[in-house]
Amino acid sequence: MEQHAAANTSDTILQLVSFNIGDEEFGVDILGVQEINRMTEVTRVPNAPSYVEGVINLRGKVIPVIDLRKRLMMNARGHDQDTRIIVVEIENKVIGFVVDKVNEVLRIPQSVTEAPPSMVSGIKSDYITAIGKLTDRLIILLDLDKILSDDEKAQISQTAA
């Protein structure tokens, strides 16, 4: 991917962690990512929203894990040996996201990204910050913060109902 970075040196470089859910490739800002773990034993949390996979023991801390597949309204699928938990820290909240496969760390210049179209494969465009156009593929840049804050709103309206 180095050729992209070299294309325009004055451009801002975005550093992303890229991962797959199904056939689609996503990217999140590397600064928010704390670590990437293999799938471990997840304890189900009864009465939690369906996209909450459960909680895990992260070195003595209990953190919630969200099934990103379910959260993005994609068809459910079992876990396999490629399944990973991306642990992110957003506004002091540590949360894990279950993804199908983690690919690589990408450096892409801002100039190859563009604003998202109104709808991308059924995902609400609110969660998408941009689309990265690489020579051979497209990467959907996700805003995990937005996903979480939307969850909270959803939960609040749930309890109010």
Binding site: V52, V62, E152
Partner: peptide, 23 residues
């Protein structure tokens, strides 16, 4: 506590980690 994100889950007061590491 289950943390800020999960907040108040009905019927669950919190969690704990057992000796074998299970939550």
């Amino acid at each position: 506590s289950l943390g800020q994100y999960l907040g108040n889950i009905p019927a669950i007061a919190g969690s704990t980690i057992l000796g074998d590491g299970r939550v």
